[in-house]
């Protein structure tokens, strides 16, 4: 059952220049992105900085107004498109979709005690009875494995990992169906990162949550996700079940990304694929395929003709003219 279905999502930011603030162009931060997330599933949205993954997730949360497209969310069997809704109309939907942020140091108000931080969403959504609220806060702290005695402390007393647990408890307060987690473990140390990854997997199994997991670290993504969507310059270039994407990537950009990840094994030192040049300017994307100036397989067709997302079967879609003929290298099957 699909809980989130995004169709042709676009978010363009206008560029104004000069004294009269004349409109001179657009940054196409998200350019025609479509994907869906099923109930209980984790879809990872990966890509490098500036690829539009965070902008896409913010449009879905309706923290940003998308330029066009549909954001269909299904709650209790009823599907609604969030894209055209106004602020007041969105309120009843907010409790069903919550966000976990990257930096647990700046996303918790330092002047609020942990108990109040977690109770805040409950209070806003009409849980007026204080003892009921405190009971729920206790339940939530328990859920994220924090002692309930921590309720009366301020965030500064906690380490990064504990703060991220508080952030997760806050996100879970209203029993949401969908969690959008934007780089939830990238600010944490390795030993703590592992604890939070396990917690997220655990909570998903227990509560049947759906995750949209925005991340840049492909090793983390491999551990948490069922399917992966790779973005480049505002577009989805490949989407596939996790194992298929890592073992048999079909887009040259995905191949380069996988190759660039440093592997924690000194005996597996190998030649990395080094992409030439840098990511193009999203305000002035290259003609044809956006990746062609950095792609070692690019042909004349890639320079002139914009590729479409083509279906290769078994849920594997890729935006490349040559996807069917290229033999690309993955990371080897899972062990």
């Amino acid at each position: 059952m699909t809980i989130l279905d995004v169709k042709n999502l676009k978010k363009y930011f206008p560029i104004h220049k000069g004294l009269l603030r004349k409109l001179v162009g657009h940054v196409k931060a998200v350019d025609d992105v479509s994907f869906s997330v099923a109930r209980g599933e984790t879809l990872a949205l990966v890509g490098e900085s500036g690829c539009g993954k965070t902008t896409a997730s913010r449009c879905i949360m309706r923290a940003l107004q998308p330029s066009s497209g549909e954001i269909n969310i299904t709650i209790d069997g009823k599907t609604t498109d969030l894209a055209p809704l106004q602020k007041a109309e969105l309120k009843p939907f907010r409790r069903h979709m919550q966000m976990v942020f990257q930096d647990p140091f700046s996303s918790l108000n330092p002047r609020m005690m942990v108990g109040d931080l977690i109770a805040e969403p409950l209070l806003i959504n009409g849980m007026d009875n204080e003892s009921e609220r405190r009971a729920r806060v206790r339940e939530l702290l328990d859920l994220v494995s924090l002692p309930t005695a921590y309720m009366n402390r301020f965030p500064h007393a906690f380490s990064g990992g504990q703060r991220q647990r508080i952030g997760i408890a806050r996100a879970l307060a209203l029993n949401p169906s969908l969690i959008v987690a934007d780089e939830p473990v990238s600010a944490l140390d390795v030993s703590v990162q592992a604890q939070i990854i396990n917690l997220l997997l655990d909570l998903q199994d227990r509560l049947g949550l759906s995750y949209l997991f925005v991340a840049h670290d492909l090793s983390v993504v491999k551990h948490v996700s069922d399917r992966v969507a790779v973005m480049y310059l505002g577009q989805l270039v490949e989407i596939a079940p996790t194992e298929a994407l890592f073992v048999t990537p079909r887009h040259p950009y995905t191949e380069a990304l996988l190759s660039a990840v440093p592997k924690p094994d000194p005996r597996a030192r190998q030649e990395r694929i080094i992409l030439s040049r840098e990511v193009a300017d999203a305000a002035n994307p290259p003609s044809g395929c956006a990746f062609h100036p950095r792609c070692s397989f690019a042909t004349d067709q890639c320079k002139s003709e914009r590729p479409h997302l083509q279906d290769l079967g078994q849920g594997h879609q890729v935006r490349c003219h040559h996807a069917r003929t290229l033999a690309l290298q993955g990371v080897g099957p899972s062990v």
Binding site: D189, S191, V192, A194, N198, H223, E243, P264, V331
Partner: peptide
Amino acid sequence: RSIPSITAKPRTKLATLEGSI
């Protein structure tokens, strides 16, 4: 043991180090 591996089976838990620094 706690490093996420790119060759791990999807959705596998990691060995953790208790507590924090």
